[in-house]
Design a protein around this nucleic acid. Structure first.
Length: 186
DNA sequence: TTATCGATGGTA
DNA sequence: ACCATCGATAAA
């Protein structure tokens, strides 16, 4: 049984955590059901000054969890129907997170469910607002350790869907496993 | 109390 | 290219 990622793993800058998340295993364990997938695509949202980060709108009931301690889930709803799952990173007070955008199914995911996109993977895993703010050091939602990807297997580019964020939209804060078919289509 | 707007995805 | 659909947010 692999180790659960500790608080210390998350308590670092999002840009450092993001590429290291590749290859790690996201697990949802509820009511006797265990669903798991290997992370193949992530984006870093680095703080209040990052105009693409929800925290740039200030500390509100929604963004509060981003300002809190690391190792918590940040789940939000976009377009009224799609959930997106993030892990909160860095020290308490630094409102940063990593968005998981692609998963390679490992366990408990329905055979035809797709996991190549932030909304799709949440549907496949059964992640909803009910999981928002949960401690990733707990036993319901967490990440399991796995060997890091070699640098040559990691590709990097601008984040998706944040064109409104000006120069922040162009920063290469998206990381994915080169060649994986579970990376979101754009 | 009401209006605006998405860190998307499915269909055409 | 269009649009479904709803919570958060800001304006009124």
């Amino acid at each position: 049984m692999p180790d659960k990622l500790s608080r210390a793993f998350y308590a670092r800058p999002a840009l450092l955590v993001a590429p290291e998340l590749l290859g790690k295993v996201l697990v949802l364990d509820e009511g006797g059901t265990r669903r798991a997938g290997r992370i193949v695509e992530v984006e870093a949202y680095v703080g209040e000054h990052d105009l693409a980060c929800h925290a740039s709108k200030g500390r509100t009931p929604r963004t509060d969890v981003l300002f809190g301690p690391p190792a918590r889930a940040y789940v939000f709803l976009v377009y009224g129907m799609h959930h997106c799952f993030n892990v909160v990173t860095d020290e308490e007070g630094v409102a940063s997170a990593c968005l998981v955008r692609g998963l390679e199914p490992i366990e408990g995911i329905p055979p035809h469910a797709r996991t190549d996109g932030p909304g799709k993977l949440c549907r496949a895993m059964g992640i909803t607002l009910a999981h928002n703010r949960l401690e990733l050091t707990g036993d319901t939602v967490f990440l399991e350790d796995a060997p890091p990807l070699t640098r040559r297997r990691i590709a990097r580019g601008p984040r998706i869907g944040v064109d409104y964020a000006g120069r922040w939209a162009r920063k290469p804060y998206r990381f994915w496993e080169r060649g994986s078919r579970f990376v979101s289509k754009v």
